[in-house]
Structure formats: C-alpha cells, structure tokens
Write a protein that binds this DNA or RNA. Structure first.
Length: 351
DNA sequence: AAATCGGGGGA
DNA sequence: TCCCCAGATTT
C-alpha cells in the first residue's frame, strides 16, 4: 500500500511536538487572562522583545482584577518601550469590561471575544484556541506568510480579496483536534522557519506540497503592499534673465531639500509670479510660462512651473551677495545647482 | 531607508 | 468599505 502524506495540520502538529517552542512564559500556567495579555503584546512585537515586558506585567498585574483596578498610568508605565500604546489603553479598558460587566469571566467564543477593545478576529481566534482549546482559525502575519506561500495566494493581504482568500485557507487548514497546539504550531512555523527572507524550507514539515517552494517563488508571497502614489507638490520658479543669458540664482538654506545648493527663486503656486518678481527683486517684466518640469524625490513629486522673465538690462538694484548671483555672468563661480535647475538652464542657454 | 505588524477610527 | 495611523524592529 502506498504511503499517504499526512494532512497539513498533522505534519504541523508533529513538527511542533518535536521542534516548536513550548517554554515561553505565556505557555506556562495557561489561563484566558495570561493568553490574552500575551496575544495583545505579540500583536506588533516580536517574541524576544515581549518576554521581559510580559514577565514584569504579570508580576504587577497577575489577574484581570488587578489590571482593571490599576491606574492607567501604571499600565502605560509597564508598556513604555513596547510601542503602539493604544494597546495598553485597550487592555486596561477590556480588563475593566471583563471584571465589571462579565463578572471576571472571559468570553469563550470568538464572536464575544471580539467585543473586547483591541481584540480582532485573529487575536480572538488565538485566545479561544489556546486558552479555551476550541477550534478557531487565526491569521496573524506569520500565518498569512505560511498560507500565502503554501497555496501561492497572490496579492497583498491588505486587499480585501486577498485577505478573504487567506482566511478561507486558514479556515480550511485548521483542524478540529488539538486547537491550542495547532495555533501555536502554525505561528511558530512562520516565526522560525517560514520567515520573510531566507525561509528554511529544508526543515519545513509542509514543504512537500508547498506551491511557492515548488516554483521557487517564496519571495513573492505574501504580495507586497503597492507603493502608494507619491504626493504631488507644485512650485513656480522664476527664471529672471538679463542680457548675456545671465540668470538670477539664489542659494538654498542649508537645511531641507537641495540644502546649500543654488537654485532659482521660488514662488508659491498660488501667488502671481510677476507680483513676486516686483516685490522681491524690483523687476518688472512680462512673464512667459514654460512647460512644467516634474522632479521626483523619494517621498513626493515636485511639479516645477518655470516662469521666464526677460529683462532689458541687468537691474542695478539686484546686487550679488552671499546668497544671490548672476549665473553666466563673466564671474560665475563654480556652484552646485539643484538637478532640475541645471536641466532648465541647459535648455535655456543652448538656444 | 523601507517594509513590517493587527486593530481602531474616521472619510 | 477603504484609508491612514501608531512606533519599534528588521532587513
């Protein structure tokens, strides 16, 4: 008789029994309160970071009653350094809810557990399965990665359709037996073997039928968050040109973009360029709008609206100084130009 | 420097 | 329903 490959869940459980972590603080003296606190702490924070915080927290607040009665400041004090401080506020509120409204008994269904502030579907599933030993699928970041790879579920989990497919996969793979061990097993697999980069497929109990492994596309799952379109800012730049193709430049402040480089005078997009030229430089000239030049930074696009003002003579009132010079004048020093300014000047001066 | 992480809250 | 946010860690 041909050997039959055990189910996904059985292979995970078997692996967890032999290699999984079973000595973590919240895996001892298991009760709903201890599991709940651990799951909240683990939401955005890794195991090794959480351990000392968890131990100190449990020492100060060993029960939901003790937590509920503690001042919020004391709770926040225990959270300092963990980040996402709303978690601590929600934890405190939820403890008060459990103590004051539920007689100190934690809900024992996913639906009821989700009513606690700070507890969503995945955290509820983790608490129900681990503390109450009832079957409940979970979908934290580790589980998303394991399932997305194993079943080659494409797309970024932030998209509703991808998230739905992942929940369906979690629902489909979660067994009835040993709910607590299974939840910990699949999270542990994601945390220790099926890691974001360099997954250790050689030791993975479910590598045999992992689609991403077969195709060598582990790095493609889960799909990445699409880079959001960069915000677009716009600015006018004055090209004040005097005879001899001399162009007025200003030095930028040392801080900020193009710090210390030389650039064209800027005018806010909503202002009149001609008015600004008159007010700031005392020059009066009809302006000519040039095509918009888009310059892209790491964090935004800058649409530069060049405004060309041609002067009949070099105005006496514009003096060169520390932060002002006529580019192309006989004495132009070697200066660093902002990249788009260099481009603009090149266009202008060659013709 | 960029990506990541689960849930809350506002558009 | 979609989008943004919180904050520290990892890559």
């Amino acid at each position: 008789m041909a050997a039959v490959t055990p189910s996904f869940a059985d292979r995970l459980l078997n692996w967890f029994d032999r290699h999984g972590r079973k000595d973590l603080p919240w895996q001892q003296d298991i009760n709903p309160y201890r599991v709940w606190v651990s799951e909240i702490m683990l939401q955005q924070t890794q195991v090794n970071t959480v351990i000392p915080y968890y131990l100190a927290f449990m020492k100060s607040f060993p029960t939901a009653q003790r937590l509920a009665r503690a001042p919020i400041d004391q709770v926040l004090h225990h959270w300092a350094g963990l980040g996402y401080y709303a978690r601590a506020r929600n934890l405190h509120k939820a403890a008060q809810f459990v103590v004051d409204e539920l007689g100190g008994e934690f809900p024992d269904t996913v639906e009821e557990m989700e009513k606690l502030p700070g507890v969503g579907k995945s955290t509820a599933g983790a608490i129900i399965s681990i503390a109450f030993k009832k079957r409940a699928p979970i979908l934290d970041g580790n589980v998303k990665r394991v399932l997305a790879r194993h079943r080659a579920i494409a797309g970024w989990p932030g998209e509703a359709a991808t998230l739905k497919a992942l929940w369906e996969a979690s629902e489909a793979t979660t067994p009835k037996k040993r709910p607590a061990a299974y939840s910990q097993a699949i999270m542990d697999l994601g945390a220790t073997l099926c890691t974001r980069s360099k997954p250790d497929c050689d030791h993975c109990p479910v590598a045999e039928d992992c689609i991403a492994k077969a195709e060598g596309t582990q790095a493609n799952f889960p799909g990445k968050k699409p880079k959001k379109a960069l915000p677009v800012k716009a600015v006018q730049m004055l090209i004040i040109e005097a005879p001899g193709q001399q162009i007025l430049l200003e030095q930028r402040p040392a801080q900020g973009i193009w710090g210390g480089l030389w650039s064209l005078p800027e005018v806010a997009i909503e202002e009149s360029a001609e008015d600004a030229a008159l007010q700031r430089f005392g020059v009066e000239s009809k302006s000519k709008t040039m095509p918009v030049l888009r310059h892209t930074f790491s964090h935004y696009h800058l649409d530069i609206h060049p405004i060309h003002l041609k002067l009949a003579s070099v105005p006496a009132q514009i003096m060169e100084g520390d932060q002002r010079l006529w580019y192309n004048s006989p004495s132009t020093p070697e200066v660093g130009l902002a990249a788009p300014v260099q481009k603009l000047l090149k266009q202008l001066i060659k013709k």
